[in-house]
């Protein structure tokens, strides 16, 4: 304890962290009427961090190739110590994240918090919901199981309902006529790099805007 206090004191003396922490965390005022439902956004963010972290661990062994993907996930689950746990957390927290984003949005919708001046909070939030679902959809193909394959096949079929360009979109998303190794590579790059980067940018914006407008005060 004493060591920690000493190190903290050293940093605090130079960077004046205590007033910063007090202003933003320990002495920050939130509306008295804020209910527990106000936690859902923060919890959704927490599950995102869990996904980023467990995802990075899975990446140590995952191989994005149709010949190797399933074996590599099986290897994680049966040969890597605690691998089963990390793999399960990643799969379960993915569902949890979607549920939490939806609950977060339900609160915003119910209390009509999306109204001026918070319209763009809502718009960026809807984008984040979309990205979260695409993350779960692309991740689901990665273990290359029967369920993955058919899930991706049915899911990528959806745009075919759009007149004229529908079929082109389907082929663009699948990177060809059928689900193949190409689809796996595309989904992999979306899942582990492109979408996490885009989502981080949107979350950054989302949080900066919340700081600017403050948390809404219920009537």
């Amino acid at each position: 304890m004493r060591v920690i206090r000493l190190i903290y004191g050293w940093i605090d003396e130079r960077f004046a962290t205590t007033p910063l922490l007090e202003k933003n965390v320990t002495k920050k005022m939130v509306p008295r009427t804020l209910s527990w439902a106000g936690c859902f956004g923060g919890l959704a963010f927490f599950t995102f961090l869990v996904q980023v972290f467990t995802g990075m661990l899975l990446l140590m062994y995952y191989k994005p190739h149709p010949e190797a993907a399933w074996d590599s996930v099986t290897f994680i689950k049966s040969n890597v110590t605690m691998g089963w746990l990390v793999q399960r957390i990643h799969a379960v927290a993915a569902n949890l994240m979607i549920a939490l984003v939806l609950m977060h949005m339900a609160r915003i919708a119910y209390y009509k918090i999306y109204r001026k001046p918070r319209e763009l909070h809502w718009v960026s939030g809807v984008c984040l919901l979309l990205f979260t679902t695409i993350m779960a959809f692309t991740g689901y193909l990665l273990p290359w199981t029967q369920l993955s394959y058919w899930g991706a096949k049915v899911g990528t079929e959806i745009p075919s309902a759009i007149p004229i360009v529908g079929q082109d979109i389907v082929e663009w998303v699948r990177r060809g006529k059928a689900i193949s190794g190409e689809t796996l590579g595309f989904f992999f790059s979306l899942h582990i790099w492109i979408l996490p980067a885009v989502m981080s940018a949107f979350m950054g914006l989302h949080f900066v805007m919340i700081r600017r407008t403050g948390i809404s005060k219920p009537l």
Binding site: L57, N79, T81, M82, V86
Partner: peptide, 13 residues
């Protein structure tokens, strides 16, 4: 921390 450290051990071959 425990599962993370355990995960980083060499896997069983």
């Amino acid at each position: 921390v425990y599962p993370i450290v355990a995960f980083l051990k060499l896997p069983l071959r």
